[in-house]
Structures are given as structure tokens and as C-alpha cells.
């Protein structure tokens, strides 16, 4: 009985999009950022990224095979993304074993305990990163300078990030104008020549990846745009009120993990809202929380926390922001 007709409900055709294509598309989009990090931080960055990716994939495979006893889906590439994103979120001199612990938390706790891909309420890479940040605050906040910076100042191996410099300085009573001499120039920031975690240094590489994902329709513009715009407007207002205490908005855009967060982390499909209006609100919330934490919070950087808090609110946003229904608002002029 080779030739039985197949019966199924319509539609009988489907798109050529698949989870694999989407996920590997994100991986491709992350390549420029990875390359920049390798360029500035050298071998350490390469080893860390590889460790993280291999650990994530391995943990997912083992958990699926031996704990959940389900069909393995590691080839879909989502674990690879988590691995890369996690690596991009740590300093390049992080001990290898910490990286592995982070990967275990990201995959094991943040993803697989909820049932795997698609069911996790929080971004796994961010959970891994925040876990590391809280468990090993010293290692996670001693930021190595880039290789290019070391060529000029060979003695300085680690230093605070630009955001850290400003935050501490302002707390001590110095004005922003004085502190600005201690931070890298905006051009350096844009191309990535500054201290920080692997992936949050080069704005241009991240934007390139973002454009690629937009082009491939993996992400929509709503979340990154409203996230970045909110940060820009909010910090702009603060800067306008008192430019000795608050840094200008461009600084905020180029430093820290804002770009990486807005383009790669907040747009994670699984943990972001399901409607365009919800996405705008989500981005707005992320932006607002980021600035609040950066300016008044205990940490100099707040993107991870902001996104995680908004992740928690996604079910609520989905409830409140249903798609606009056809024939609901009747305006037939």
C-alpha cells in the first residue's frame, strides 16, 4: 500500500521558514559582533565563546536525552544562540569553569526546567549572566581593556567600564564634564575600542547584525526602536535638566549592553510580546528601567535586569494588548 492518499486539513502548503532557519539566522547575525570581540580581546574571547557554546549545546543535549527523555532538538540552533549571547555578556578574562556554570544555569535552569524552547519565560542567556553577576561579582565586573588600548597603556589590564567611571565619579561629586576625559571617545565606543564584556563593546557590529535580522524578517523593528528611543529621550531629558550630573544621551546609547540588549536580547521571540503594540510597550519598559537602574540603581548597567523584569511582564502585556481585530473599529467613511 504504497500509494495511499494523504488527508489533512487545509492549508496544504507551508512557508519555507522554519525554526532552524530563524535560529541559524540569528547566529549569522551575531557573527560580526563575535569577530569584533575576538579582534579586541584576543584568544581569551575565542576560548570563552567556544566554551560557552559547547557547554550550552552539550547541556541541552544531555538534559533532553537523560532527564526529559524526549527527542533531541539541539540542532535547531537555539542553544548555540544562548551560548554565544552568554559569552558576549561576560568579561574576556572570566575563568572557564565560571563560564560553564553560567551555561548550566542558562540552559538547565532558565530553559529546560520550563520545558525547553518556546516555554521559558525569561531569556536564558540573561538569566545565566545575572546568575554569574550575582555569584561572582568581582570576576564579572573587572573589565579587561582591549588589546588596542593595552598597546598604548600596557600597565592597565583591567578597568571599569565607561558607565562605571561616570557613575562612581558622579557619586563622589565630580561633574560629568571632568569625567568625560577618562572615558573613551565616541568613535572608539562606536567601533568597539573600549573595555567591557565581549559583545557590548561595538555598536556598529551589533547594528549590522540587527539589520540582517530585520532584512530576514527574524525580528521586527518595534522592540529595538522603542527600547533605544526611550533610553535616548529619557537620558536626553535628564541631560537637559542638569548636564553636570547626567551624561548626554549618545553616551548612553553607545556604552554598556544597550545595543546588544535591544537588538539581540529583548527581541528574543520566546520572551517578548505577541503584538506590535505590546512590543512597543515592552521596548518602552525596557528603556525606562534601564535608565532608572543606570542613573539611580546600585549597578552601573541595567539592561539585563530591565529586560528580565519586562520578560516577567510579558504575559500581562499579551493579555492587555490583543491584536487589532478586523471589523472591530468600524470607520467606513
Amino acid at each position: 500500500m504504497a500509494n495511499l492518499l494523504t488527508i489533512s486539513g487545509s492549508p496544504h502548503v507551508s512557508t519555507n521558514q522554519s525554526i532552524n532557519k530563524i535560529m541559524w539566522g540569528v547566529v549569522i547575525a551575531l557573527v560580526p559582533t563575535m569577530l569584533v570581540s575576538f579582534w579586541y580581546f584576543g584568544l581569551g574571547a575565542i576560548i570563552l565563546t567556544l566554551t560557552s557554546v559547547i557547554a550550552c549545546v552539550l547541556f541541552e543535549f544531555l538534559i533532553q536525552k537523560y532527564l526529559l527523555k524526549q527527542e533531541s532538538t539541539v540542532t535547531d540552533g537555539s542553544a548555540v544562540i544562548t551560548g554565544i549571547l552568554l559569552a558576549l555578556n561576560v568579561p574576556s578574562n572570566l575563568p572557564i569553569w565560571m563560564m560553564i556554570v553560567g551555561a548550566l544555569v542558562a540552559i538547565g535552569v532558565a530553559k529546560m526546567t520550563y520545558g525547553g524552547l518556546g516555554k521559558n519565560p525569561f531569556n536564558p542567556a540573561l538569566i545565566g549572566r545575572v546568575f554569574l553577576l550575582m555569584s561572582f561579582p568581582v570576576n564579572m565586573t573587572s573589565w579587561p581593556t582591549t588589546l588596542a588600548q593595552r598597546a598604548i597603556l600596557p600597565d592597565v589590564i583591567t578597568g571599569p567600564t565607561a558607565l562605571g567611571i561616570i557613575k562612581e565619579g558622579v557619586a563622589k561629586g565630580e561633574t560629568v564634564q571632568q569625567l568625560m576625559h577618562n572615558v573613551p571617545s565616541y568613535t572608539d565606543m562606536f567601533i568597539g575600542n573600549m573595555g567591557g564584556s565581549l559583545g557590548e563593546v561595538s555598536a556598529i557590529a551589533i547594528i549590522l547584525g540587527g539589520l540582517f535580522m530585520l532584512f530576514r524578517k527574524i525580528i521586527s523593528w518595534h522592540i529595538p526602536a522603542s527600547f533605544i528611543l526611550t533610553v535616548f529621550v529619557f537620558t536626553g531629558m535628564l541631560f537637559y535638566i542638569d548636564n553636570t550630573k547626567f551624561v548626554d544621551p549618545v553616551f548612553h546609547l553607545l556604552t554598556g549592553g544597550l545595543m546588544l540588549g535591544a537588538i539581540f536580547m529583548a527581541t528574543d521571540m520566546v520572551t517578548s510580546p505577541m503584538t506590535k503594540s505590546g512590543m512597543l510597550l515592552f521596548g518602552f519598559g525596557c528603556g525606562l528601567l534601564t535608565v532608572l537602574i543606570r542613573v539611580w540603581g546600585a549597578y552601573p548597567e541595567g539592561v539585563s535586569f530591565a529586560i528580565l523584569i519586562m520578560n516577567a511582564l510579558v504575559p500581562l502585556i499579551n493579555k492587555g494588548f490583543k491584536p487589532k481585530k478586523f471589523g472591530e473599529v468600524v470607520n467606513n467613511g
Binding site: M1, L4, L5, T6, I7, S8, G9
Partner: peptide, 10 residues
């Protein structure tokens, strides 16, 4: 009752 078709769906 041998199958004459093959179902593929939910």
C-alpha cells in the same frame, strides 16, 4: 478495515 488513505494532522 484496511486503510485507504493516510491521515496527517492533529
Amino acid at each position: 478495515a484496511p486503510s485507504k488513505t493516510q491521515y496527517d494532522g492533529v
